[in-house]
């Protein structure tokens, strides 16, 4: 067992830990993390055993035709959904099989993927606000209520982004956002703007719904990753509770 050899396996292990923790923290299901890491390791000629949890990843890498192995654990960063990274890594894992990418090339691709830009902030705010207005229309609101929901969602998401930027607890950020959005939409209910103004109040907080945790929770549970499914489900439940808390504060304040 020479040092050079071990260094090579360590390099593969570091890269696989990067791939696994990036997928997990950006919104992939447990099954996808396992499949992708196995696919990349297999293409490079290694066998890997994984222990995947919501906030840490542990793996053992073994050479396919050797006896050398190495294990390590890494803490997964806080979850923040970014499907561009999930999609990019999934695409890359196929290229590892088809184009025989080397570990160095994979590392370069990971660096490129993590530095890809997000959509411009104003565009995100406007489109999510439009999505809130669409919800309002779907639940039977008129044009005036849609406008109220648009503004409430715009401000609410802005508050959430700022709260996350200032390192508030993520659940607190949701309470703040829900409170801000329902303060604006609640004002229209209080002042009696529009004929069906409580549609605005009900739909102005919908941009916060924990869609990714809840759907991934069910996917994990059906797939047999019961523990991770429960963790995600509890997380989704706390988010839902945080939304309700913010909404409740605003409603009590207006006495609706």
């Amino acid at each position: 067992m020479n040092g050079e050899h071990i260094k090579k396996i360590k390099g593969v292990e570091e890269m696989l830990l990067d791939v696994g923790t990036l997928l997990m923290s950006n919104g992939a299901s447990t099954g996808r993390v396992r499949t992708t890491v196995n696919r990349i390791a297999g293409a490079l000629g290694y066998e890997v055993e994984l222990l995947i949890t919501s906030r840490s990843l542990m793996l053992t890498v073994t050479e396919e035709n050797g006896s050398d192995y190495t294990s390590s654990v890494r803490r997964t960063p806080p979850h923040a959904v970014n499907f561009r990274i999930v999609s990019g890594i999934s695409r890359m894992s196929w290229r590892v099989i088809e184009d025989n990418l080397s570990v160095e090339q994979i590392n370069i691709e990971i660096t490129r993927l993590t530095s890809l830009p997000h959509y411009p902030r104003l565009l995100v705010l406007s489109l999510v606000a439009l999505s809130g207005a669409s919800f309002c229309r779907l639940f039977g609101g008129g044009w005036l209520e849609m406008l109220v929901t648009f503004m409430a969602t715009f401000v609410g998401l802005f508050i959430r982004q700022e709260a996350i930027k200032h390192r508030f607890n993520p659940y607190m950020a949701i309470v703040f956002a829900s409170f801000a959005a329902s303060l604006i939409s609640g004002l229209s209910v209080k002042m009696g703007i529009g004929s069906t103004s409580d549609h605005a109040l009900a739909t102005s907080v919908l941009f916060l719904i924990p869609g990714v945790p809840l759907i991934n929770s069910l996917t994990d549970l059906i797939d047999g990753n019961t523990l991770n499914g429960i963790v995600r489900g509890v997380n989704g439940f706390i988010i839902a509770f945080a939304i309700a808390l913010g909404l409740m504060f605003a409603m009590q304040l207006y006495g609706i």
């Binding site: 959904v81 999505s131 990714v212």
Partner: peptide, 9 residues
């Protein structure tokens, strides 16, 4: 809107 929020390609 949710697609953009989740930063899809």
């Amino acid at each position: 809107g949710f697609g953009v929020l989740f930063n899809v390609p």
